[in-house]
Design a protein around this nucleic acid. Structure first.
Length: 744
DNA sequence: TAGTTGGGTTTTTTT
DNA sequence: AACCCAACTA
């Protein structure tokens, strides 16, 4: 036995060496579970002689999968690339692309994201004349998602209605939704799992083949699996029963996505012969950080008791600061990081600032720009969900899968080619009558009455798509996307538009092209379908690289699985964290326990220093909130902190902004410095060209381009045009009102 | 058909 | 604050 195993503690060793039968590895935060998993894989191959081909490791994010793969590769000499290390969703895509035809899907099926789902559901609700004022789209979407996560088919849903009117409507919508997706040869995220389970249930030959292949299965972040994912795993493991699940019930934070915490809590009931191993030594955090985390999570009722400990001494106290408002909070975090970096105490890449919501990152981001601190915001709008990117992907999807009505309809008039709502409705009606796809109806546009001269435009469109399809045989992926952009004039139209963010849109398109090029370089045999699948399943966190010299700003959810020597958690106020939604929900006890687990995840990300902050006053969705300090702060024993929590309670706003009546001729402007004051123009008229508060020669900061020098300010027709020479991005000309430049 | 504007709405987290 | 949609205008 080599020294690979010598540095493991006894429990970790047990986890590595217990290779046969069901194993439940309860791995506390920072207890080295990834190390156990990867070493276990190496042990299976090197000591037990298991063929790498027979090993499967499943995670939730591509990033986690990639890291695991890399670490296994470092440990084992050969064969690492034949281990199946992927995410749940990409595993299912691979299986379904191969055998989806058994379920009536074509291998070119496309994957619908949340945006596409919304489009489908909207259409259906309109068709069924369901008023979206009373029952929102997301009500139906989440009902459908929940059903799929519980493996309930539309038919099964129908049977379980039991006279409930709302449920009968959901059943109707669910059925129609599912039919639409199938007609479009498309699956949503939940389908990927559910349909794979369906496939296994109904086609034992396929199941047996995969059971035979995956003789050793490992599942990471097991506490976040849902019922469908559990079924998937159980099917695969049913034959050899070598299933090792790793997780921590205290870190279960994805209930909203269908995660079923019972999967981990009841594992021993499902597999009575399971070996349970607890990893309780923490290698990451100081005792103070750990004590704080344990104190907070100790308030949860439904959990497995565990005792995390560390050999890393007491360490610094938890830093705690409260501020009058969120601006001061952001200032403090920015200055603190800046100073410590300047004094050589920390590196920027050692720091992360965590928030409950994505929007909270904005404020800190703005300060970072002014201070010149390099940073990366993880999350928010996914790159591939941006309008211009989705448009171009819709072209690719249409070329790949002509049955995807959502994709076709998205681009039929983008860029503008004179096909309006009326024409589209005529095509829809024609397609519905004949029960054919939108695209196929378009190909018969000359037979659709009432189209008039739009018919020619539509024919031109289908001819163009056909041309792309035939040209695809001749050139590569990157040529195709460049051709699409060129032929459709997509960028040309953007350039001509006076849209405020045309420039950044074009930059995004350039980035998309680069992504296609590098995808092509990395996968020589890559098909269009491969690219679309990959793109559909990437998360923002997947792109995060360690040691990039940047401070990371992200949500607590995104931070799961990561660690940083210095962690800041901002916005610790009741109503922000824990969120208002959890406090006001129908089952606040359970929801607040979930928020508390999120707090536990956040705290345990920290290695050496943890800074917790809150603000008495904060702007949320355009209105000022006054919240009490978070209950989680109060759960941390005061001796662990360097500052006491002075009590501040939820205050009543004396002048509610909404009910405020402005005195005559003196319009009231809520929040911030009024443009009227700055521009010196009166009478509440829309102020287009309020003069900027900077002059030529000033140093200014821009949200995207960073720091630059103002080279010129010219008064245009509508607004001031400002020329700025940016340090990194070079010279740019922009409208003052849009650019939102801040004098530094 | 295209562009603009005003009014209403917003669950926070994501594969 | 930001986004989406319907209604209105050109």
């Amino acid at each position: 036995m080599n020294k690979l195993y010598d540095t493991l503690n006894d429990q970790q060793k047990k986890g590595v060496f217990t290779t046969e039968g069901p194993v439940l590895l309860l791995a506390g935060a920072g207890s080295g579970k990834t190390r156990v998993l990867t070493t276990r894989v190496a042990y299976l191959i090197e000591e037990k002689g298991v063929n790498p081909w027979n090993i499967m490791a499943i995670t939730f994010t591509n990033k986690a999968a990639g890291e695991m793969k890399e670490r296994v590769e470092d440990m084992v000499g050969f064969g690492a690339d034949s281990i199946w290390v992927t995410t749940f969703h990409s595993t299912c895509v691979r299986i379904l692309k191969r055998y989806g035809d058994r379920l009536g899907y074509d291998s070119t099926f496309t994957i619908y994201d949340t945006d596409d789902q919304k489009t489908v559901i909207k259409e259906i609700l309109k068709k069924f004349q369901i008023d979206t004022k009373t029952l929102k789209e997301r009500y139906f979407l989440s009902a459908i998602s929940n059903a799929k996560n519980e493996l309930i088919s539309p038919q099964a849903y129908h049977k379980a209605i039991g006279g409930d009117f709302n449920k009968s409507r959901i059943a109707k919508v669910y059925e129609e939704y599912q039919n639409t997706l199938k007609r479009n040869n498309a699956m949503d995220f939940d389908d990927l799992i559910m349909q794979t389970v369906e496939l296994f249930k109904n086609h034992s030959d396929i199941l047996e083949q995969y059971q035979e292949r995956f003789r050793y299965i490992m599942v990471d972040e097991y506490q976040d699996t849902n019922t469908a994912q559990f079924a998937l795993i159980s099917h695969l493991a049913a034959k050899y029963r070598n299933i090792c699940v790793v997780g921590d019930d205290d870190q279960s934070i994805y209930k909203f996505r269908g995660a079923n915490i019972r999967n981990i809590l009841d594992f021993e009931k499902v597999y009575p012969d399971a070996v349970v191993i607890k990893l309780e030594q923490n290698y990451r955090s100081t005792q103070n950080v750990l004590d704080a985390a344990n104190a907070v999570i100790g308030n949860n009722q439904s959990r497995k008791e565990k005792a995390l400990w560390t050999e890393k001494g007491e360490g610094n106290k938890i830093h705690f600061r409260q501020f009058d408002n969120a601006f001061e909070e952001a200032d403090y975090i920015t200055d603190d990081i800046y100073k410590k970096q300047k004094d050589g105490l920390i590196r920027y890449s050692d720091c992360a600032v965590l928030f409950r919501t994505n929007a909270q990152a904005r404020l800190v981001e703005e300060r970072f720009i002014i201070r010149g601190i390099p940073y990366d915001v993880v999350g928010g709008t996914n790159f591939y969900a941006r309008r211009e990117i989705k448009d171009l992907l819709a072209y690719l999807k249409t070329i790949e899968n002509g049955r995807d009505d959502i994709a076709v309809r998205r681009i039929i008039n983008v860029p503008k080619r004179g096909v309006g709502m009326t024409s589209i409705q005529r095509i829809v009606d024609y397609a519905d009558e004949r029960n054919i796809n939108f695209y196929d109806a378009m190909r018969e546009s000359d037979q659709i009455i009432g189209l008039g001269k739009a018919a020619m435009k539509i024919t031109a469109f289908t001819t163009m798509i056909q041309a792309f399809r035939s040209k695809m045989e001749l050139y590569g992926l990157s040529d195709l996307i460049k051709d699409v952009i060129e032929t459709t004039g997509y960028i040309t139209e953007l350039e001509a538009s006076n849209e405020e963010d045309a420039q950044s849109r074009i930059e995004n398109i350039d980035e998309l092209i680069s992504k296609v090029v590098s995808f092509e370089e990395n996968n020589h045999e890559a098909t269009l379908s491969d690219f679309l699948d990959e793109v559909a399943l990437v998360a923002d966190i997947d792109h995060v690289v360690g040691e990039s010299g940047q401070v990371l700003l992200m949500t607590l959810h995104s931070a799961k699985g990561l660690e940083f020597p210095h962690v800041y958690i901002a916005g610790l106020e009741d109503g922000v964290f824990p969120s208002y939604m959890s406090i006001a929900s129908e089952d606040p006890e359970a929801e607040i326990e979930e928020e508390r687990r999120l707090a536990y995840v956040g705290i345990t990300r920290a290695g050496d220093d943890l800074t917790l902050t809150c603000a008495k006053q904060r702007m949320v969705r355009g209105e000022t909130q006054y919240n009490a300090a978070s209950r989680f702060l109060k759960e941390i024993p005061p001796p662990l902190m360097d500052n006491r929590l002075s009590t501040f309670r939820k205050m009543k706003v004396t002048v509610p902004v909404k009910n405020y009546t402005a005195p005559e001729n003196k319009p009231y402007v809520a929040g911030g410095v009024s443009a009227l004051k700055r521009g010196g123009i009166g009478q509440g008229l829309p102020v287009m060209g309020a003069s900027p508060d900077y002059i030529v020669g000033d140093k200014v900061a821009h949200i995207k381009y960073g720091i630059g020098i103002v080279r010129g300010i010219e008064q245009g027709a509508k607004d001031y045009q400002v020329t700025v020479d940016f340090d990194t991005a070079g010279p740019k000309i922009m409208y003052a009102a849009f650019a939102k430049l801040k004098k530094v």
